[in-house]
Nucleic acid binder design. Structure first.
Lengths: 216, 216
DNA sequence: GTCTATAGCTTGATAGAC
DNA sequence: GTCTATCAAGCTATAGAC
């Protein structure tokens, strides 16, 4: 056993911290409430007392940081120029994630891993992903519609989906690219990634305006 | 209970089919061997007899179709022109996945969901993702290095990672984009997606050559 | 809010008959 | 290769004392 997480902090927070780390490592069903409460250094029964069923603990873990990310993104969107560039919009959406991951402490890395698994499972689509993230995603779409008036709605949403997939897998830091590139790329070099993510996704978005088959 | 999958087929295949569907729905730990063997219409003990521990069954499920995808991709790469375009390369990598998903039968959709979860969890990175997919990924990188000689190795690998993230989440068909777009986009319209995926990712790749911060 | 104790089930894996 | 039966351990959730 490792030492309990966050000693001295309130019980609710210690449970959330431990659950975040373990859910990120092993997924919802790969972790028991016993694992979580043991890692938090509290009694088993306290998980149920504070959060109800296990599923609600999972949602509570994600909701805690999702609120913070959403607030940061709303702030960025509100500070954009009247006619934002494609790069401006992608940056406003992506930078809060990068900032937290680099400077927010270890919990944010666990959170990013957790989001990657949650976003790629149909099981949590409605109750977690759409419920927590669609309102701010819609701000992104609205902005992009102004920045690239030639795009159809389909272009706008699919472009966002491609952006989301790339971001999600990247911030998950699974180690895949480290192995594939034999050390040339490291998932932890988030600034190096960011210098590529923005131009890559911006160019991709712009290309949708000129794609050959316009009527699909 | 639903009817057993693949009645009349050999036991090993029936177990693989059932495991594929259930692992895709609920993940490795969300499914028991009892769930799988019941869905397959065989006895519990036969899962262990044919595949050993549960983890090896999981790997066997993925390996079965990974071989087929890898063969199809190798074939496409071997048929490319001497100087392939960026679009040629992305198409050679992505089209086998699309073809199987559209025309390969329901098992291929389950497989794509399963890959999305597997690719986004550090737990399976080495033993599944790198072991099964890195050799063919390297063919893609080699081709792209010729097509875009101005790119650094970092550019090439990160571009691939962005492509992979977008493809993975898209073919997972979680339903997220359907909800977000309120029906404008449907994850099942794979040809519509493909008409956007290729130009988006190709333009992204080309943009890496001209990005501002060259030395990161 | 926190603790102990436990009910009621499910789990992966295997032993041994056929 | 398939079946029955079972082991030992794990699980979520809750009741009830403090």
């Amino acid at each position: 056993m490792t030492a309990p997480l966050s000693p001295g902090l309130p019980t609710k927070q210690r449970i959330l911290d431990a659950a975040e780390r373990l859910f990120a490592e092993r997924g919802f069903d790969g972790v028991s409430l016993r694992d979580i409460t043991a890692a938090a250094g509290v009694e088993l029964a306290l998980a149920n007392y504070h959060f109800g069923p296990k599923k609600e603990l999972y949602v509570a873990v994600i909701r805690r940081r999702a609120s913070e990310i959403n607030d940061a993104r709303r702030q960025r969107f509100s500070e954009l120029p009247v006619m934002p560039s494609v790069e401006n919009l992608i940056d406003a959406f992506a930078r809060p994630y990068l900032e937290k991951s680099v400077h927010g402490g270890p919990g944010w890395k666990d959170y990013a891993r957790l989001i990657a698994q949650t976003a790629n499972s149909a099981r949590w689509t409605q109750v977690v992903m759409s419920a927590l993230f669609d309102p701010v995603a819609e701000l992104f779409i609205v902005g992009m519609r102004k920045a690239l008036p030639g795009l159809t709605s389909r272009d706008l949403y699919w472009g966002f989906h491609f952006l989301l997939g790339g971001m999600t897998m990247t911030f998950a830091e699974t180690g895949r690219i480290d192995l594939l590139s034999e050390g040339v790329c490291r998932a932890s070099e988030l600034e190096v990634i960011y210098a590529r993510l923005i131009p890559f996704m911006a160019a991709g978005y712009r290309a949708l305006a000129g794609k050959v088959d316009q009527n699909t």
